[in-house]
């Protein structure tokens, strides 16, 4: 898994160059926005994969980390004039600590129990933020407008800088997850996934490695949250802390192929443009047709292509050889 063939490296370089060139070729706000959302969910899918794909911790509570990241940097900026880039790091650390705090009681839970616990946790966070006056409660927060610059993490005239920042975040996340999975931690996580008891018998600290995975995953997801706050410039619990965001993250990873490095990216490139465009075409009156299609898609994927598109591509690739 760690070694790449020259052909694979060439492929990744070509894709990366194409993505860097994309805003130069395609002008227009909406396609840029769709690409930014694609990168963002791909990043969160990659982060989820560390939990669900490698360690069989099916988290349905990633929205909590996303929200913690978004709220931390925003509160720091609004109340204490702290630069959003510092807020991003603080938010990530806070999310990682929260992840650890929730990870300890949940560390013995497996499968469905973990999934339900993660939902319960995220719901607690959502309910608290909905009623907590300090963070704007249900009315939400509007970010103060700063002059546009990379240092301020804010741009008004164009979305293109956001595009490059998010692309950089995504590449960074992929690199971190790749690094973890090809090193000892990754083997431990997979050992735990394959057989809980056996891994324990081999002296692998089940709890410790699961905690590491949760913390890294929470940190990366919180980064995406801060990005989202700086990008949309408005926050409320019902837009960043809700279950549908967590589900979207799981689906991105699952559609692409859970437990593979590039799987979530493939999943996001299919799912996010699909949902963004159907929302624009069908969902203008808030009728929910776009979400219905989405529901059908989920049913079809899980019933007929549960190993994800990446699994399908690998199978085809092997047959071609």
């Amino acid at each position: 898994m760690g070694k790449f063939t020259p052909r694979q490296i060439a492929l990744y370089v070509v894709v990366l160059v194409a993505l860097i060139a994309f805003p130069l070729v395609v002008k227009g706000t909406f396609p840029t926005h769709v690409m930014i959302m694609f990168f963002m969910f791909a990043m969160m899918g990659v982060a989820w994969n560390l939990l669900g794909g490698y360690a069989a911790m099916f988290s349905f509570g990633q929205a909590a980390f996303f929200g913690i990241g978004a709220y931390t940097s925003t509160i720091l900026l609004m109340n204490y004039h702290v630069n959003p880039w510092i807020g991003l790091v603080v938010g990530g650390i806070l999310a990682a600590l929260t992840g650890a705090a929730i990870g300890i009681p949940c560390s013995n839970l497996r499968g469905h129990y973990f999934a339900i616990a993660s939902i319960a946790f995220a719901e607690i966070v959502r309910i608290c933020f909905n009623n907590w006056k300090f963070v704007g409660a249900a009315e939400g927060l509007s970010l103060p407008l700063l002059p546009e610059s990379l240092g301020n993490f804010m741009f008004h005239s164009t979305k293109v800088p956001y595009y490059y920042i998010m692309l950089a975040f995504l590449v960074l996340s992929i690199f971190i997850c790749w690094y973890i999975t090809v090193n000892r931690g990754g083997f431990y996580l997979r050992a735990i996934k394959e057989s809980h008891e056996l891994a324990k018998g081999m002296g692998i600290s089940f709890v410790r490695y699961r905690l590491y995975a949760i913390m890294v995953s929470a940190f990366l997801t919180a980064m995406a949250g801060t990005f989202y706050a700086q990008y949309i410039l408005y926050l409320d619990p019902e837009s960043v802390l809700i279950l549908p965001i967590s589900v979207q993250v799981v689906l991105v990873a699952m559609l692409g192929g859970a437990g593979t490095i590039m799987g979530p990216v493939i999943g996001a490139v299919i799912l996010i443009p699909l949902s963004e465009y159907t929302r624009v075409w069908l969902g203008t009156k808030g009728t929910g047709v776009d979400m219905m299609l989405y529901g059908v898609l989920i049913m079809l994927i899980s019933a007929y292509q549960p190993k994800g598109v990446w699994g399908l591509l690998t199978a085809i690739g092997k047959r071609a050889k």
Binding site: V247, M291, G295, P306
Partner: peptide, 28 residues
């Protein structure tokens, strides 16, 4: 019945699809 033999994740997610579909069909 189609996901009963599939991966654990598919079993978790399939009924989410049903949920999203029904809830939004009701809104419509």
């Amino acid at each position: 019945s189609k996901v009963m033999t599939g991966p654990a994740l598919a079993q978790l997610v399939v009924t989410f699809g049903v949920s999203i579909f029904i809830a939004n069909a009701a809104v419509l």
